[in-house]
Amino acid sequence: MHEMAICENIRVLIEEQARTQHFSRVERVCLEIGALSGVEVEALRFGFDVVMRGSVAADARLDIVETAGTAWCLPCAVTVTIGRRYDPCPRCGSHQIQVTGGEEMKIRELEVT
């Protein structure tokens, strides 16, 4: 459900680009999705095909670059990698951590004709 809403936003952005950058077909879409963005990549792939039907990006190939979740651990005073938002610090087990990266959701590039 959430991923469908994200795909609708992607479609709007792509169609806007099609008008301003003058292309009629998208061959490939490359997204950057952070591990902590709350998006399920599999659900996003499914939603993408459904939502892009009838648009300039119908049948486009979808590449997804998944970026790691990172956080600053207060007790350790270092940046650590976390897989999910509520994971503790992998070094000390503390929950006193502040997410610093991995929340992004971006369209990196489009291959168009």
Partner: peptide
């Protein structure tokens, strides 16, 4: 058939809403 080209967008998917 026109040449494929690459558009580097780096656009936040929720940018419009933001």
């Amino acid at each position: 058939m026109s040449q494929a080209r690459l558009i580097q967008l780096e656009a936040d998917i929720l940018g419009k809403n933001n």
